[in-house]
Amino acid sequence: MARTLINVPKAATAGEVVTIKTLISHPMETGFRPGADGRIRPRDIITDFTCLYDGEPVFRAELFPAAAANPYLTFTLRATRTGTLTFTWRGDNGFVQTETATLTVT
């Protein structure tokens, strides 16, 4: 399991635009660099990130080899109801990681 840091505001008012910040530990190996033995290291990157708000997709990003290691993604969404945010990172070699957080709307 990769390490992640997720910041969701503790509480929001209905209709408020909130900022979500996510950071995940990942080497994002480009597939273009030679290793210590001179061979090209195989590509190992995160290719897709999605955020679901109570099952409904609210943000999605495709990532490519130019993205830096430990990708930091931040985005905004309109808080309408108390619900669960599900973050999923998918990548090469079957990499899948899912984290959840609760957004409380008052």
Binding site: R3, T4, L5, N7, K21, L23, N70, Y72, T74
Partner: peptide, 14 residues
Amino acid sequence: RDADANPGLLWLQD
């Protein structure tokens, strides 16, 4: 400064 953006914090968890 940002406790959500500093990637060093991933190592701190380890």
